[in-house]
Simulated scan of single mutants.
Amino acid sequence: MISTSASLDRPAADPTRIRAAAALAALLTVGAGLGLRAVAAGNVPKYGGDALYTILLLTLVVLAAPRVTPLRAAAVALAASWAVEFLQLGPLPAELSRRSAVARLVLGSTFNAPDLFWYVVGAAAGCLAHTALRRRSRA
């Protein structure tokens, strides 16, 4: 394996610190989503919530795998968001959402094609933030 002197100058990121930052980011994301629902109306909380949903999933990916690259974390979060959205084409999420507020928040109830775009927005924003934080922690 070939290593460069630049990589030798930088200490490896501490997984405990990364997990703590990811946990804090997850809490802040949930707070932002709840705050958005409390103060905004119309499409803003709906589509903003979609983007924040994917950002939350990205933070959970980083929490589980602290050394994951920003692009891979964003891809996993986006894939999970899309999977949940496409699951809404069937009856299961709607049925579970009728029974549980938590299921309604996590799974939604009905398929909405524009949500797919807003998940991409959330994945891109999360990827950019993750990249910036990684660069900052290495500086």
Rank of each mutant, 00 (worst) to 15 (best):
L58R: 08
G31H: 04
L89G: 03
R10I: 13
I18N: 02
R67E: 08
A41Y: 10
L105K: 11
R67K: 09
L89C: 08
Y47D: 14
N112F: 14
A101F: 06
P66H: 02
L52G: 03
K46I: 12
L87S: 15
Y53V: 04
A80W: 00
P45L: 01
A83E: 08
G48E: 06
V68H: 02
D14F: 04
G35Y: 09
L107I: 06
V39C: 07
V30T: 03
L71K: 06
A26W: 01
A22T: 01
A51M: 01
A77R: 09
P11F: 00
D9F: 10
L116K: 10
R67G: 13
G90L: 07
I18D: 05
L52F: 08
I55Y: 09
S100L: 01
A23H: 04
A25R: 00
G108R: 05
S81G: 12
G35N: 09
L34A: 15
V39G: 07
V62C: 09
R19D: 00
P15L: 10
S97R: 06
P45R: 00
A73F: 00
L57Y: 00
T54L: 08
W118S: 04
Q88V: 07
A12V: 12
R98L: 13
A75F: 03
T110I: 07
A32H: 06
S97G: 14
F117Y: 06
A38S: 13
T29N: 14
L36Y: 07
V102A: 11
S5D: 15
L24D: 03
F111L: 11
A73G: 11
G108P: 10
A124Y: 10
A20W: 10
A13M: 11
A23Q: 03
G49C: 01
V30K: 06
A38C: 02
P66R: 02
F86V: 15
F111Q: 02
L52I: 00
L28D: 06
S7K: 08
A13Q: 13
F117M: 08
P11H: 01
V44H: 13
A25F: 02
R37G: 15
P11E: 02
A26N: 02
E85G: 11
L8F: 07
V120S: 10
G122R: 12
L57N: 06
L89F: 06
V76S: 01
G42N: 05
R99S: 11
W118K: 05
P45G: 01
V84I: 15
A64V: 11
S7G: 04
G42T: 02
W118E: 06
A75M: 06
E95C: 05
D115N: 15
A123C: 12
R72S: 04
T54S: 11
A123T: 10
L96F: 02
V44Y: 13
A103C: 08
A79W: 00
G48D: 05
A13C: 04
L28R: 04
R72F: 04
L87D: 10
T69E: 12
L89D: 10
L34V: 15
I18G: 03
A26T: 05
L57C: 11
T59V: 03
L56I: 05
L52N: 08
A38W: 04
S109V: 03
L56V: 06
R98H: 12
L24R: 08
A64L: 15
A6W: 03
L96R: 03
L28I: 10
T110F: 10
L36A: 00
A74Y: 00
L57G: 14
R19N: 01
G108V: 00
F86I: 14
T59S: 13
A12F: 03
K46S: 09
L57H: 03
L63Q: 10
A23S: 11
